[in-house]
Design a protein around this nucleic acid. Structure first.
Length: 422
RNA sequence: GGCCCCGUGGUGUAACGGUUAGCACGCGAGGUUUUCAACCUCGUAGCGCGGGUUCGACUCCCGCCGGGGCUACCA
């Protein structure tokens, strides 16, 4: 099965444009091929095919401009435009569409879709300068490249009869067609590069995993009989059926993608996880990063969320003043001082020992865990949200932990003194 | 305007002539808990409308309404 990748965005394909699409395919870990025919060769074949249809009478030159056609339509109602053949070599070339009958698209997903020929214009297949237009070019390419399946967005369904008509004119057999439901943005309009929010590049930058994106996308417009949600790529390949694809368009829901991505993130093995995080934040994976990932893996739904959780282990954190004010009050200072002592005496600085030592303080004063742990958290991470407190301390290490808590104690003391004075 | 496609909760879907219309995300409540997540339990909400066909319609037919796509000497 040879499948043509079709950019559904209505832009002229520029090299940058194509580059982007190929990048996206690579990121999604999808295989692709440049195809058997070069760009130059294609142009040549288009020219040949054009000559052929002109000679056979399947197409003709017509001097009418688009304004002329519009005027013609106003006069003749909504039936398809038919032009007047001219000898003018500079005129555009139109394909002669039959006056009666239907052109029927046999679609693997939608069944037979009939398009009445009398409502179809004799459409332009080549400009006055001889360059061919999309609907003509793809039909010729499909034949030349021996494309067997054209699987593309629903927005191309109405183009298909034109392409079919072209293939009929140049006497080549059509490929099989399957028109997938379109993806819509939250605004209900078809998703395109303009939507940004859901382009593959955006998804990558937002920290989603290729496997999760593949899983999520497959579920838009398609589902298994038992409605399974989590499907590995192997399972996807195993279970996917074109015939099972739905017909209605789907709205892209990033919240569900987030959830799904979180599942994939949590199930990754630590090394791949650290590697993915490293690549995402532009660092080299090392032992420290791996240790950091180990304590954050349960908490992040996207790669973007990882660094905010572990950044404090690498750089001096900036203090979230809101969190500070919320946490550093009433009993915080004395508890923090005690914690400092307890931690100083710790020799292993393993999570278990830290929990024991700090737990003792809790028991002595009969305070809720949050009263002690939140101040420590803000002291060492700068924020009130972080991985588990014992793990965080352990990975940060004794010296740096003590240093940061000391600093917090100093600041608190100063603030208390200032408070008393005023 | 013309041609075409589509219509199950907020979202993605399952069931396709007979079910209390299932599942997942989200949302809400509770539990667990050192924060945030995660996790567990319970709950919330749907067959666009109107006619047929049928003993029986979400499922079949027609109409309407709604959404979308195409309608370039663009791709």
């Amino acid at each position: 099965m040879l499948l043509r990748i079709e950019d559904t965005d209505r832009e002229r394909s520029t090299p940058e444009n194509v580059e982007q699409i190929l990048d996206a395919l690579d990121w999604l870990e999808l295989d692709w091929d440049e195809g058997p025919i070069s760009q130059a060769e294609r142009a040549e074949r288009h020219g040949e095919a054009l000559e052929r249809v002109l000679e056979s009478g399947a197409a003709y030159r017509d001097a009418a401009t688009s304004e002329d056609v519009a005027a013609w339509k106003r006069e003749h109602g909504n039936s398809g435009y038919r032009g007047e053949p001219t000898e003018d070599r500079g005129a555009a070339v139109r394909l002669r569409v039959p006056d009666s009958g239907d052109t029927v698209v046999v679609d693997e997903i939608r069944g037979d879709v009939r398009f009445p020929n009398d409502s179809q214009d004799d459409f332009v297949i080549a400009r006055g300068d001889g360059s061919v237009l999309y609907n003509f070019a793809v039909a010729v390419d499909d034949a030349d490249m021996e494309i067997t399946h054209v699987i593309r967005g629903d927005d191309h369904l109405s183009n298909t009869p034109k392409q079919l008509l072209v293939m009929e004119a140049i006497e080549i057999p059509p490929p099989r067609y399957a028109h997938l439901p379109l993806l819509h943005g939250p605004d209900g309009k078809k998703l395109s590069k303009r939507h940004g929010a859901a382009s593959v590049q955006e998804l990558r930058d937002a920290g989603y995993l290729p496997a999760a994106v593949r899983n999520y996308l497959a579920l838009l417009g398609w589902g298994t009989q038992d409605d399974t949600t989590i499907l590995s790529t192997d399972e996807l390949i195993e279970r996917f059926e074109l015939s099972g694809v739905g017909r209605s368009s789907a709205i892209f829901d990033e919240r569900k993608l987030r959830w799904l991505n979180g599942r994939y993130m949590r199930e990754m093995d630590l090394d791949s996880y650290a590697e993915a995080v490293a690549r995402h934040v532009g660092r080299e994976p090392d032992e420290r990063l791996t240790a950091a990932c180990a304590i954050a893996q349960e908490k992040a739904q996207t790669l973007n969320e990882v660094w905010p959780l572990i950044g404090f282990l690498f750089d001096e954190p900036e203090t979230d003043e809101h969190a500070w004010r919320k946490v550093m009050k009433d009993g915080a200072l004395p508890l923090l001082r005690e914690a400092l002592e307890a931690l100083r005496e710790a020799d292993s600085f393993e999570p278990e020992e830290l929990e024991t030592r700090l737990g003792r303080i809790l028991a002595e004063h009969d305070v809720k865990p949050g009263k002690l742990y939140q101040p420590i958290r803000v002291a060492i991470t700068g924020t009130s949200v972080s991985p588990g407190i014992f793990e965080s301390l352990a990975v940060l290490g004794k010296d740096r932990s003590l240093e940061r808590i000391e600093r917090a104690v100093r600041r608190l003391s100063t603030e208390a003194a200032d408070g008393n004075r005023s």
